[in-house]
Amino acid sequence: MTDAELLKLCHTVLPGHRAKTPAEMFSSMAAWCEANDVAHDVYGNGELIQQFEQKIASLLGYEAAVFCISGTMAQVTALRLACEDRGSRLAALHPTSHIFVHEKSNYQLLDHFDALQVGDRHRPFTAADLAVIPDRLGAVGLELPMREIGGQVPAWDELEAIKAHCRSRNVHLHMDGARLWEAAAGYKHSAKEIASGFDSAYVSLYKGIGGLGGAMLAGTERFVARAAEWFRRQGGNVIHRSPYVVAAAMQFDQRLAEMPLYFRRTERLYETLRDYPLIKVNPARPQANMLHLHLPVSRERALAIRNEIARDHKVWLFGRAAHGALSDTSLVELYVGDNLARMPDHDLRAALDLLVAAMENPAWVTITPSP
Rank of each mutant, 00 (worst) to 15 (best):
L137V: 01
Q117P: 04
A128S: 14
T96F: 01
P145F: 07
I133S: 01
G138V: 04
D111T: 13
L90W: 02
D135P: 00
R121P: 08
S97M: 06
F113G: 04
L109I: 07
P134C: 02
V140K: 05
H102E: 13
I133V: 15
H98S: 14
A127K: 11
D120T: 00
A115N: 05
L93K: 08
D111C: 11
H102C: 12
L109V: 11
V140P: 07
L130K: 11
L137Q: 03
D135C: 02
N106D: 09
R136K: 15
D111H: 14
I99F: 09
P145I: 13
L142D: 08
D111A: 13
L116R: 03
H98E: 12
A127C: 12
T96C: 09
G141M: 12
L130S: 07
H102P: 00
V140I: 11
P145K: 07
E143W: 04
G119V: 01
E103W: 13
D120G: 01
L90F: 00
V140G: 06
A128T: 10
L116F: 00
S97G: 09
F113K: 04
A115S: 10
A128F: 05
A92F: 03
F125D: 06
R123P: 00
D129H: 06
D111Q: 12
V132D: 03
K104N: 14
P134W: 00
A91K: 06
T96M: 13
V101N: 10
A92R: 02
K104E: 14
H112C: 15
V118R: 01
H94L: 09
L109G: 01
S105W: 14
G138W: 03
L116T: 00
A92K: 05
H122V: 00
D120M: 04
L93V: 15
L142V: 15
E103Y: 12
A91S: 13
L137I: 01
S105E: 14
A131M: 04
E143I: 07
K104M: 12
L144A: 11
P134I: 10
K104P: 00
L137P: 02
P134R: 10
N106T: 09
P134Y: 00
R136Q: 12
R136F: 00
L142S: 10
F125S: 11
Q117L: 08
V118A: 02
D114I: 00
V140R: 05
Q108W: 03
D114L: 02
G119E: 02
D114F: 00
A91M: 08
P124T: 05
H112F: 15
L130H: 09
E143Q: 14
